[in-house]
Nucleic acid binder design. Structure first.
Lengths: 205, 205
DNA sequence: CAGATTCTTGACTTCGTGTTCTATAACTGG
DNA sequence: CCAGTTATAGAACACGAAGTCAAGAATCTG
């Protein structure tokens, strides 16, 4: 059973391109022809290796997740402390590069009401950064950077919420990013958790 | 110049339906036929009164903006104080009703790279809640609920970021909303601003 | 080398959907 | 009642894009 003619392109590179195209222009504005053109291959080759458009998108989402995970590892490596890593990660969300938003978050409203299976995948992907943050916060707590009684889970959730909001803000601002000031809240949250774990009911209300 | 045959439907109600359909299912998953069916009218009537699909969507976005503005007025009216209104508004973002996200925010990534004009409208719409929050915070400051030197603009921006994040979180969670805990950050932010305006650089980093 | 196998190329089919056309109905002013 | 005007209903059109087919090209293995 001999093998046939080998591929003339690199599937990995193609997946990267698919990811970028879907990311920048969204699912519906990106035709299979667009993808094939951007990759420099024929449509049929695309269908051969990845399947239909939905499957291509699915693969692109997976790749996106892995790429971000890898980026997190890099950030952690370059950081002086776990809490520093958290801060660096959050600041990623305000860079001009975030003006296309998040591939997964962008796609969620597109598929939520019409494709339950794909939506489930997207929702799962959306929880990745939260897990990363929680593990980093755990490290920070063990290192004494946070109060020992700090509610790591709640903080991770809050930071995730913040991150989503910052990314959305970056999309609204476009390339004219004036978002660094918004990082104040991150510092506020972290410095608060460095002191105590429970938030006092504020003011009179 | 006599008038012709009168409409057999209520354009306002139809716009409401268009808004809801676009909101729930997104732009591309909602065909003009779907809209007409949901409204109980013919396609041609739709084109007659609103124009093409893009214009229908545009009108739906406008209506969405007005509806939210009106909702804000209602909230303010029902609140015991400006700060209470802020808190109530923020808590809207964690209700299960927010699981479809925001019509405008959902559409932004869809059009950002392919329709500059529409994108501009969407971006402008996205800044409405920020203006509302700023005015409310201003009221709160004048009423002594906030420190006189509180940075109203920064707070409004931060709260907007938070709100976007909360809405995204609601979409990820779906109907199983466990988001109230995330309102901690709101209280944290507000209680902080009740004390002082500038955030101290946190910890050693 | 030969045959099997897989890739590539481009045309083709199919289908959904946005949009328009045509004929008919309803209303108003003269 | 008639003419002019506007809405309605449904068919018809146009077009792009997803997905498939068939023939040819390139490679591997026995």
């Amino acid at each position: 059973m001999p093998a046939g003619r080998p591929r003339e392109f690199d599937p990995d590179r193609c997946l990267d391109i698919a990811m970028q195209e879907f990311w920048r222009r969204g699912y519906d504005s990106t035709s299979v022809g667009d993808l094939a053109d951007a990759m420099g291959i024929g449509r049929q080759s695309l269908y051969n290796t990845f399947g239909d458009k939905r499957e291509i998108f699915l693969a692109a989402v997976q790749r996106y997740g892995e790429a971000r995970e890898q980026e997190c590892s890099r950030i952690l490596l370059e950081s002086t402390s776990a809490l520093d890593a958290v801060r660096r990660l959050m600041s990623k969300a305000v860079e001009p590069a975030a003006c296309s938003g998040c591939l997964v978050g962008n796609a969620l409203p597109r598929f939520a009401a019409v494709d339950a299976d794909l939506s489930a995948v997207l929702r799962r992907e959306m929880q990745r950064p939260q897990r990363v943050l929680r593990s980093w916060l755990s490290l920070a707590r063990d290192a004494g950077e946070l109060d020992a009684r700090a509610d790591i889970d709640a903080m991770a959730r809050d930071l995730t919420v913040l991150m989503s909001g910052l990314i959305m803000q970056a999309m609204v601002d476009g390339d004219s990013t004036r978002a660094e000031p918004s990082l104040r809240v991150v510092d506020l949250l972290l410095s608060d958790a460095a002191r105590t774990t429970s938030v006092e009911p504020p003011l009179q209300a």
